[in-house]
Each structure stands twice: as C-alpha cells, then as structure tokens.
C-alpha cells in the first residue's frame, strides 16, 4: 500500500505532540517533515518541543524546520495558560540532538513539495502563518498540494479564542483567509468535532499501561486536562490528533461539505470560521467540515499507536 505523504505544520502544544505521536506510528502515513508555527507558545519554544517529541520517539530522521516568529499581521498571542510556560509543560522531554533544517519552514515546505512525485497532504495544527506564506510565495506548487487537513475553527458556537473564534484561526485570521480562499481542498477539524474527541479522565490508566509512549500521552493529558477538568468536562480534547486520525481512518468522523469564510472585521466574530451549513448563501463549498467522531474508536487508535511503539522500540541509537 502506498503511504500518504504528509507535511506537518504545528505549534506543540500538548495535542500537537499527540498528533506527532500518532502520525509517526502509522503505517499509512509518510511524514516528510515537520515545520513549526508560533501559536501555543513562541516559535523558539514550539520548535524545541517538536524536536523534543521526535527525540523522545527516536525519530531524529524526521526533518524539522522553524517557522515565522509571528503571525502575518497581528501581534504574537500565545496560550501559556493552557500549555504552560514551555508550551509543553508537564512531562520532561529529552534535549534534542538532531539539528534543525537550515532553511525556513516555508522554504522547506516548498522544497519538499517540489521534490515529491505525488501530491502531498499538508497537516497544519497551529495558526496558518506558514501555509499562507507558502501559498503566496509558491503559487506554482499549489497543484502539488493534495489537500490541507487542518485543526482550526468552529462552525457552531464552540470557541477557544476571543469571541466566536477558535484559537488557531484567531491568532492569524489573515493567514486563515488566504488558506480558505486558496482553492486547495480543505478538511477542517474544528472544535465542533475536536471538543468531543477526548481521552476520558478515567481512560488515562489504559495509556499508562501501554508503555513508554502511552505514559507520555497520559502525562501530556494530565497537564493539558487541568483546565478542562476545572470547567467540568469528562475528558481532555485531543484537538490536533483529529487531523491525523482522519487521514488514517476517515470513517471515524462525520463530515459535511460547506462553504467556510473567515471573518476579518467583527468585534466578537473576528477570526471565526463562518460555515454555511444550510447553503443559505449559495456559494461553492470549499471545506469538508468535521462534525462528530466515534470517540471510542479514536481512543483505541491512539492506544494501538502507543502500543506499536513498544513493539518497534523508540530508539535513536
């Protein structure tokens, strides 16, 4: 079976880290590289975290390139309250030993797209700064992008940013607009689905029993889950891993095609993804939007991924 070539663009972040764990475990995916975005924490921190996760997983072979240090037009806005001072507070990760790519994220992405003999799936799980820049700088490479499977936005009322917006889109709404109007097929895993794709607080023990990587996942959810527990949720949403889970097994999710636009000037709606669920405005659809998931199967997929690392080992040696 041909593996799906993907490029991950992320801002680790606890749920980004779990997305990386899931992606690198899968026999269905070929991770061509990881680029980092400024989002959950500053670009220095998210980049170090991406390296740390790959180091922990024994995957120094995965090339990592650092992204832009700020959103396109808006000030840096991070989520330390959710992800901690380091962006990945909680578990202790090893110091990364593999060097970063010399080129920037955008140049790296362009190089990988140009090199690929088949269209590549982009998987952004942070603000869309790098992807938007790629679209602006390398329009000739757009045909090499199969689709963009992103975590971001919300078409109903869930919000994790200011007003009606979700954090990733809120941080760089102009980048999001560039991506959503690019004509590239978009699969949007927003809060409508990710808020309900959780690891239950009572399920963490299963992960601790699944070995070293499972224990890391449990530790990540310990820290990231604090806030959700405090507001009465039953589990920790694993937002970013929904993108990878979709690529591995799309039958886990209920999806709907619709037109989605980015609000760029609202007082309460700036940065929101305005989804025309009923097609009221008669515009062409541009996104396949995740609306629901089979949570138990998602958790099993993650557990199997963690257990898989035990069989294959996690070593850079």
């Amino acid at each position: 079976m041909n593996k799906i070539p993907i490029l991950m663009d992320c801002d680790p972040g606890h749920d980004d880290a779990i997305a990386i764990i899931l992606a690198l475990s899968s026999e269905k995916l070929n991770v061509l590289g990881i680029t980092t975005a400024c989002g959950n924490q500053t670009i220095e921190k998210t980049t170090k975290n991406a390296q740390g996760i790959c180091e922990f997983l024994g995957r120094r072979d995965i090339p990592i390139a650092k992204g832009r240090n700020a959103p396109l037009l808006t000030p840096v806005y991070t989520a330390g309250i959710a992800h901690g001072e380091s962006g990945l507070d909680g578990p202790k990760l090893p110091e990364p030993k593999a060097p970063l790519q010399e080129e920037s994220a955008v140049v790296f992405l362009a190089k990988k797209l140009a090199e690929s003999t088949e269209p590549v799936v982009l998987v952004p799980t942070g603000p869309l700064t790098n992807i938007a820049t790629l679209i602006l700088c390398y329009p000739q490479l757009i045909p090499k992008i199969d689709k963009i499977v992103l975590m971001g936005g919300s078409v109903v009322s869930g919000c994790s940013g200011r007003g009606a917006s979700e954090f990733n889109i809120m941080v760089d709404p102009y980048a999001a607009d560039i991506v959503y109007t690019s004509g590239i097929p978009i699969v949007m895993m927003g809060l409508d689905v990710t808020n309900f794709t959780t690891i239950g607080f009572d399920e963490k023990r299963k992960f601790r029993n699944a070995g070293r990587v499972g224990t890391l996942v449990a530790d990540l959810t310990d820290y990231f889950g604090r806030g959700f527990e405090m507001v009465g949720w039953c589990g920790v949403p694993i937002h970013d891993a929904c993108t990878i889970a979709y690529l591995i097994d799309s039958s886990l999710f209920t999806m709907k095609e619709m037109n989605v636009r980015i609000d760029l000037n609202g007082e309460f709606t700036m940065g929101s993804t305005v989804g025309d669920y009923y097609g009221v405005e008669g515009q062409e659809t541009n996104a396949l939007v995740g609306l629901a998931s089979d949570r138990e199967r998602f958790v099993n997929l993650l557990l199997e991924a963690c257990a898989g690392y035990e069989k294959g080992g996690c070593s850079n040696e």
């Binding site: 000037n265 609202g266 007082e267 709606t269 700036m270």
Partner: peptide
Amino acid sequence: IETKSDIC
C-alpha cells in the same frame, strides 16, 4: 450581538 463584521 455582532454589528461590525461584514459577513456576521
């Protein structure tokens, strides 16, 4: 109530 957005 949003009053300033062009699409919302």
